[in-house]
Design a binder for these strands. Structure first.
Ligand SMILES: [Mn+2]
Ligand SMILES: [Mn+2]
Ligand SMILES: [Zn+2]
Ligand SMILES: [Zn+2]
Lengths: 151, 151
DNA sequence: AATTAAATGAAAATTATTTTTATTTATACG
DNA sequence: CGTATAAATAAAAATAATTTTCATTTAATT
């Protein structure tokens, strides 16, 4: 994710193109890892000309609300965010509990008739959450050697 | 969910059968609604012989960890819990954004080859989250009249 | 360049959640 | 049944994530 792409996304959402927003997006989009608001803040607060933590919170929330970034759900009662490079089609993610890596699941992994079933019963579906947790190939391999941090 | 059922569940999990745990389980299991720790606390603190909020947090966490109760994910950065009457087979839920009602989705609504795909690529799957959000039939119906609170 | 709604900073406040430590209790066992 | 003991709980205090407020700045428009 570069500034151009970030700029395009913000334009599309009718949000002002600000250096802070671009910085947050580039930070999250630079690696396939999920981060907390605090972590994003630490990584960018010295660049730009400093940025406040509340601003990071606001930006992350806006972008998540707009669907540009994905909320990652863990049991630790903290919110994590991930900016997927693939903004084209709707899909979900595999999250490595060991190294924080997030990987695409090809298509939306929802079973065929699931949403239809709800709607047929009279309900209206507005969104859905789907997240596969586990340990990624690299972290699973005993002699991985690769760039998989042990957290 | 009555005390007998709660007792059986705790026994199965090798957890001590305490009045507080039974109270929390009966509270959550009395309605198909999700609640926060604080809400559970308010509903039961006068019964039993009072109960501390940290105890409610601990119990909810234990039961969620054990898979007896389900964490409900909302964007409001708070943890919600739901105790499903159907403890038999693995499945997921539809959550009404309007009245907090939680409904069963028949089977696990994950697409067929989803977990296989991850494993075939070398990763290991440990768990998955699947939640459908929307507005339930009752809340969707203009002249519902029924017992669907407007939140 | 002027205008203005939106974005941001800084400090303070809030609130959900956790930790600590002393006390109580469920359960196993003689 | 008493007793022993590990586990559970209370109460108070602490923590840490997140939000609010309000004054100031800035991106976009004219
Ligand atoms: Mn993706
Ligand atoms: Mn259920
Ligand atoms: Zn990994
Ligand atoms: Zn409803």
């Amino acid at each position: 994710m570069n500034r151009e792409q970030g700029r395009d996304i913000l334009k599309r959402l009718n949000m002002k193109v600000t250096p802070k927003r671009l910085e947050v997006m580039c930070c999250l989009g630079s690696e396939p890892l999920y981060l907390s608001a605090d972590e994003v803040w630490h990584r960018i607060k010295d660049r730009v000309d400093s940025i406040g933590l509340p601003t990071v919170y606001r930006i992350l929330d806006e972008l998540a609300e707009a669907g540009v970034i994905t909320r990652i759900f863990l049991a630790d009662r903290k919110q994590y965010y991930f900016l997927c490079a693939n903004q084209d089609h709707h899909h979900h993610h595999f999250v490595c509990e060991s190294c924080r890596r997030v990987e695409d699941l090809g298509q939306c992994a929802l079973g065929e008739g699931t949403l239809d079933a709800v709607q047929r019963s009279g309900g209206r579906v507005t969104s859905h959450i789907l997240q596969i947790n586990g340990v990624c190939a690299t972290c699973s391999t005993p002699r991985g050697g690769a760039a998989c941090r042990t957290k």
